[in-house]
Design a protein around this nucleic acid. Structure first.
Length: 507
RNA sequence: GGUCCUGUGGCCGAGUGGUUAGGCUCAGCUCUGCAAAAGCUGCUACUCCAGUUCGAACCUGGACGGGACCUCCA
């Protein structure tokens, strides 16, 4: 097993990963709230954890990866009297059942995840499917004395909890600062302390989603779902919990409090947080209104207006965002994301994306070249050393940025061997193929995008026929014909590359 | 206002107390009928000021700039 170091938000430093029950690993990541389309910022988080999941699997762990779907309980302006369940609100606005809202957006979510080649988690539980577990956990927290009921609402008693526990252990904030800096909000009267948060909310008459509970009809608070579901599927204490950095001060802080309040144990050994995605230097978020959707970026994502997976916003778009000169493939965007470490902010821009797209194409072209390069009796390159560096990069807190730099060394070796400037033994060529398989395809989750369907196979034959004709023309020094073929293919979107071993093409 | 992060060459973006990050762009060369591709070479940076050190972009302090969180947010 590779020695893996990861950055633990709890300690604010990297430490070596030790699983509780190796080779098993429990991984929980906070999933989306399906009241609208997932945006690119959400995708970055899920892509980052996809890499971690893939790497843990690759180095031999048996991972149970739980990523929830929030379909109830996620409030707008949680503490305000006007607070409203996000999904309930959408349902009211669109005159649909709440579950229709969730169903609609989960199609879109799954489609986007699959376009990004993000592996599905082992379990994808929904909050509404675990109401009983949430009620039980809430009751247990009350029994332990860390929560109280008031007029059908149940609140977590942060002040009481803080007497014996460090509430701000994850955020690094002390209680006094938080108390002094919390703004005045509505609906504070019935709570004992201003930091107290809801475990259970009483349903108003117009509220659609409601369940019976010991405290009357209502619905669960947002934070309790992750505690209840992670406890159910991964245990009272599990290995890794992830999510976006913006969840640290509230959601994850409260998860820790709930779990200790219920079970007397910290829920997680390693907290891992991904940084935000910015657009023109500003965080992309729904509240700022500067989000954009994968469909606005991707080429070929054509959803029919009446497709069940087409949310109204997706259907119109298809790779036409005003900020970007052209559409990009999902794999180019995935590669772009991995060029930045997951704990750094990632700024989306047209230029940066185009640079990544070219780099990605070069990486993939080299893989094709690798299939045909000649073997020598000796090697002039240290391929084993590169493989070791690739593992070292990933072991150092999943440093995909450094990994990619190592992989471009591989590209260099492949190309120069192809040009007969360096030599590789067959064993080294095979090892390079293994490196590609492991790091590019299995771990980074990239894939070659040209489909191997019938039309592609036929097209390949047709273009090779045309290239043969062009070659004959070149041999006969009929350059006007050969250039005409090349130019016309070019304008049709086919690029010709003349190499030592003949011509090749790509779209 | 409080807490915290950050400032790297034309652009994006790693990194470590002393050694080439990498990608993209640009220029020159090799190859080529020309071009593209590929290869080679060059452009060699670390906001500013002070300190610690034999030596700092990397540690400490300050200034200025950017950002995040403190309210829902991945």
């Amino acid at each position: 097993m590779q020695p893996l170091f990861l950055y633990n938000t709890l300690l604010r430093k990297k430490e070596e990963f030790k699983a509780i029950n190796p080779p098993f690993v429990g991984l929980y990541v906070c999933g989306p709230t399906l009241y609208s389309d997932v945006h690119i910022g959400n995708c970055r988080t899920f892509t980052s954890f996809d890499i971690m999941y893939r790497y843990l699997l690759h180095i031999g762990y048996k991972v149970r990866y739980v990523r929830n779907i929030t379909d109830v309980g996620h409030m707008e302006n949680e503490d305000a009297a006007t607070g409203e369940d996000r999904i309930g609100k959408q349902a009211r606005l669109k005159q649909l059942e709440p579950m229709e809202i969730v169903q609609r957006y989960s199609f879109g979510f799954r489609e986007v995840m699959s376009l990004f080649n993000i592996l599905p988690p082992s379990i994808e539980p929904t909050a509404s499917g675990h109401i009983i577990e949430q009620i039980e956990m809430t009751q247990k927290i009350i029994d332990q004395g860390y929560a109280y009921e008031k007029d059908g609402n149940v609140y977590f008693d942060v002040e009481k909890f803080s007497k014996t526990n460090n509430y701000g252990i994850l955020s690094g904030r002390n209680l006094e600062d938080q108390l002094n800096n919390t703004r005045d909000l509505d609906g504070q009267e019935e709570k004992k302390g201003r930091l107290d948060f809801a475990l259970w909310k009483k349903a108003k008459p117009e509220h659609i989603m409601r369940w019976n509970s010991p405290w009357g009809e209502g619905f669960p608070g947002w934070h309790i779902e992750c505690s209840a579901m992670s406890k159910k599927y991964l245990g009272e204490t599990f290995d890794i919990h992830g999510g976006g950095m913006d969840l640290i001060p509230t959601h994850h802080t409260n998860e820790i409090a709930q779990n200790i309040g219920c079970c007397g144990a910290a829920p997680v050994n390693y907290w891992v947080h991904t940084n935000m995605l910015t657009l023109n230097g500003q965080k992309m978020s729904r509240s700022l209104g500067n989000v954009f959707l994968p469909a606005e970026l991707f080429s070929g994502m054509k959803l029919a207006e009446d497709s069940p997976s087409a949310t109204p916003s997706q259907a119109k778009l298809n790779g036409k965002h005003p900020l970007f000169e052209k559409a990009f493939s999902p794999m180019a965007v995935r590669f772009f994301m991995m060029q930045t470490h997951y704990r750094s902010t990632l700024d989306f821009s047209n230029e940066a994306l185009q640079a990544s797209e070219k780099g990605f194409e070069r990486l993939m072209e080299a893989y094709k070249t690798l299939q045909t390069i000649p073997a020598s009796t000796t090697s002039s390159e240290d391929v084993k050393g590169i493989e070791a560096k690739c593992y070292a990069a990933m072991n150092d807190d999943f440093n995909t940025s450094v990994l990619i730099a190592e992989l471009f060394d591989v590209v260099k070796i492949i190309n120069s061997t192809n040009d007969r400037k360096t030599q590789l033994t067959q064993a080294d060529i095979d090892l390079l193929k293994t490196i590609y398989q492991h790091f590019v395809f299995d771990i980074m989750g990239l894939k070659i995008e040209t489909e191997n369907d019938k039309t592609t196979v036929v097209l390949d034959k047709v273009i090779h026929l045309v290239l043969d004709i062009r070659n004959d023309a070149k041999t006969n020094k009929n350059f006007s014909l050969s250039d005409k073929i090349r130019d016309n293919l070019n304008s049709a979107g086919v690029t010709i590359k003349d190499g030592k071993e003949g011509s090749s093409w790509k779209i």
